[in-house]
Design a protein around this nucleic acid. Structure first.
Lengths: 146, 146
DNA sequence: AGCGATGTAACAATTGACATTACAACAAGG
DNA sequence: CCTTGTTGTAATGTCAATTGTTACATCGCT
């Protein structure tokens, strides 16, 4: 299975908030319009980002803003915040290898190490990319349109 | 969502085939016993591994064997063979960002590049680990048991 | 108080993984 | 050549997660 689209939606949302915060009141309806999903999906997402300290959402009057400098938010932070994969681990290990079998009772020890290597390679790359980069590149694309 | 357990099962299966090929006839029932899943799950998996040229399966008389040297099979080969993630891509991009929105119509271009970087980091690590390493380490563990 | 938002529960629809049953196709031994 | 053990594969069921949607209580501001 693929990593939940919550991840790409979250990055889209953060980019929108930063890009439009001076021009518009950035509500869940506004964001839902840009992403093309139901506003409730956005609200749920914003709750997760808020819990991770990435955004602030103001009830009542409405609108979302980003809680800390974009350069301090990495793709990994977002990935974790929106719970992109279940249970924290990228790989799903089959639960009950047969303990009567020599391979069955040892495969977990051997594989865990390798799977962690792979997962770390991925997560480290995520940590090296900030949302700031993404926002800036997006602004470049937008300017080049005109 | 996590990567399908087919991936870890496949590696378990390859390790079993190599470990037990001289002692037993390695049938889908035998493998199913070690992994603790239904034999049909193993057969489907073996079909995928066979299509990728990783194993040979003999009908009728039964039994599976590995088709090429273990040192030439990487975790990435297995990952691809069993179709661990759908559609080839690790990330699920939300389909219809709003083209009326400057961010909506450009986010795909910006993000695709970053997502590929991440995916490549993961896949390259997979390519650097061979099944031979895994089999050998497993044998070490088994010997240290006695 | 009323308006415009958010927060969240409830529920349906869809999808994919995995388990299981059933049976046809096949290879080899007696 | 026919029985036996096995593979190949279709059909079906179950379960969990994602996503969409409706509904409404709650809240902040004017």
């Amino acid at each position: 299975m693929q990593i939940s689209s919550r991840f790409t939606i979250a990055i889209h949302v953060l980019t929108c908030i930063d890009t439009f915060q001076d021009e518009y009141k950035v509500t869940s309806d506004f964001l839902a319009g840009s992403v093309s999903v139901n506003p409730v999906v956005i609200r749920r997402l914003l709750q997760q980002l808020k819990a991770a300290g990435i955004v602030k959402v103001t009830r009542g009057s409405g609108g979302a803003e980003i809680a800390k400098p974009l350069s301090e938010i990495t793709m990994f932070d977002v990935y974790k915040a929106v719970d992109s994969v279940g249970h924290g681990d990228l790989f799903h290990f089959h639960e009950n290898p047969n303990k009567e079998c020599p391979v069955g009772r040892n495969i977990h020890n051997v594989l865990d190490d390798k799977l962690n290597q792979i997962q770390n390679a991925m997560e480290n790359t995520m940590k090296s990319i900030t949302i700031q980069e993404i926002v800036e590149e997006t602004k470049c694309y937008i300017q080049n349109e005109s």
